[in-house]
Amino acid sequence: MNVCDYRKLSISMSYYLQLFRNNAGVGRTGTYIVLDAMLKQIQAKGVVNVFGFLLHIRNQRNFLVQTEEQYIFIHDALVEAIMSGETNLRMEQIQELKKSNSYLEQQYKNIIQFQAKDIHISAAMKQVNSIKNRGAIFPVNSYRVHLTPKPGEEGSDYINGTWLHGFRRLKDFIVTQHPMHHTVKDFWQMIWDHNVQTIVMLSSLDEINFAQFWPADDTTSIDSDSYRMRFLSKCNKSDYVTRDFIIQSTQHDYELSVKMLHYPSWPNLANANTIYDFIVDVHERASDYRNGPIVIVDR
Rank of each mutant, 00 (worst) to 15 (best):
E207K: 13
R230W: 00
I222E: 05
H165L: 08
I174F: 04
L232K: 12
S221M: 09
S203A: 15
L164N: 04
E207F: 09
T176D: 06
L232T: 14
L202T: 05
I174M: 08
D172C: 13
W214P: 00
I174T: 06
A216L: 11
V196H: 07
D172L: 04
D223W: 02
D193C: 11
D218G: 10
K171A: 06
R230Y: 02
R228K: 14
L232S: 12
V175H: 01
D193R: 06
M190L: 13
D172Q: 15
I222K: 10
T219V: 06
M201N: 15
F213N: 05
M201G: 05
D206M: 03
S226M: 01
I222H: 08
H181S: 13
D217E: 07
R169N: 10
D217S: 14
D193G: 11
D225Q: 12
D225F: 04
I191M: 08
V196F: 07
V196G: 02
L170W: 06
E207H: 10
S224T: 15
I208Q: 10
G166C: 00
W188V: 07
A211W: 03
Q189N: 12
D223C: 05
D186N: 15
T183L: 13
Q177E: 15
T176E: 06
A211V: 13
V175E: 01
I208A: 08
M180V: 08
F213P: 01
F167L: 14
F213T: 02
M180D: 04
Q189C: 04
W163R: 03
D186H: 13
W214N: 04
R228E: 12
H194I: 10
W192T: 12
D217K: 07
M229W: 00
S203T: 15
T220F: 06
H182R: 13
F173S: 05
M201D: 12
L164D: 02
I191W: 03
I191E: 03
P215C: 01
N195C: 12
S204D: 14
S226P: 01
S221V: 06
D172W: 07
I191C: 03
H182F: 14
H165V: 09
H165I: 08
G166Q: 00
L205D: 05
Q212A: 08
H165K: 15
W214A: 05
E207P: 00
V175A: 14
D186K: 02
T219F: 03
K185G: 00
F173E: 04
T198F: 00
W188D: 09
F173C: 06
R168F: 13
F231V: 09
P215K: 07
S226A: 05
F231N: 12
W163S: 03
V184P: 00
M201Y: 07
T220N: 11
G166V: 01
M201A: 07
A216P: 00
M180Y: 09
H165N: 15
Q189R: 15
E207I: 10
V196C: 15
V184C: 11
R168L: 12
N195G: 08
W163E: 01
L164G: 03
H178K: 09
R228Y: 01
P215S: 01
T219S: 15
S226W: 00
M201F: 08
L164R: 13
D206N: 15
I208F: 11
D206E: 03
M190P: 06
S203Q: 09
M229K: 00
K185I: 11
S226T: 14
I199H: 00
